[in-house]
Nucleic acid binder design. Structure first.
Lengths: 115, 115
DNA sequence: CTTTATATATAGATTATCTATATATAATTA
DNA sequence: TAATTATATATAGATAATCTATATATAAAG
């Protein structure tokens, strides 16, 4: 079932940084990986992702370099910087605080501390 | 730690509807209840809440009526309609799908292996 | 009597994401 | 061989949700 996309606001950057924590990736690969890992709950459009990547690079959270694939196709890989790693850590903590708070309201005051 | 407010986008309506599922409330009360239940993670501004309430009423998800408090102060109470209850149910399911998907990415849960 | 808390309201700004469109090459299918 | 689909990146303009700032009014507290 497709979810209201506005839910993603504020989380997209965190998800992208998280992917890059595991390994360097190119844009198209991120779209596919996110779709797979989320069971297609996240189907980021190219027009959404690329501007975000440009913004992350401008803020020095990621660095990019070009590299040819086996088929000679040129891809633009992104690498997480130290600064990006630090932000990711913060953002993951924010997500925990936020999702616990939502669950507190939706579950009638009970909060989840367990992992 | 104050969280990035953009995370709330798309969830605010769900939280408000959830409060009204328990009992009728007036705006100011919702702001305080949300702050309390979320340990002040949610500190909705009046200028954020009231326009949302007007929108919910327009969509017939809530109904309003005025009532005087003990101190003669006039309050505008909101009541969840049948339509609102149905939407709430949907929104709660959406939240579950969404938060599970985020956790899948952030906790490195699902792998390619299964796909 | 002055400030703070309670209570509601609206206009305008901000910002993240979406839609639509554009380009180009590789791989597949007709 | 030609046409189509998948891969890959990019940008302009639109949309929508929330925030900031401002306004009004009364009750309670200092």
């Amino acid at each position: 079932m497709p979810i209201d996309k506005s839910l993603l606001t504020g989380s997209t950057t965190t998800l992208i940084l998280k992917l890059l924590e595991e390994k360097d990736m190119y844009g198209y690969e991120m779209i596919e990986t996110l779709a797979n890992k989320s069971d297609h709950t996240f189907d980021l459009k190219a027009g959404t992702l690329y501007p975000i990547l440009h913004g992350l690079e401008k803020k020095e959270l990621v660095e990019s370099y070009e590299q040819k694939a086996d088929n000679d196709r040129l891809r633009k890989y992104y690498h997480l910087t130290k600064k990006g790693k630090n932000l990711l850590k913060e953002k993951q903590e924010e997500w925990t605080v936020f999702s616990n708070a939502v669950n507190s309201v939706l579950n009638g005051g009970l909060s989840y501390a367990s992992v």
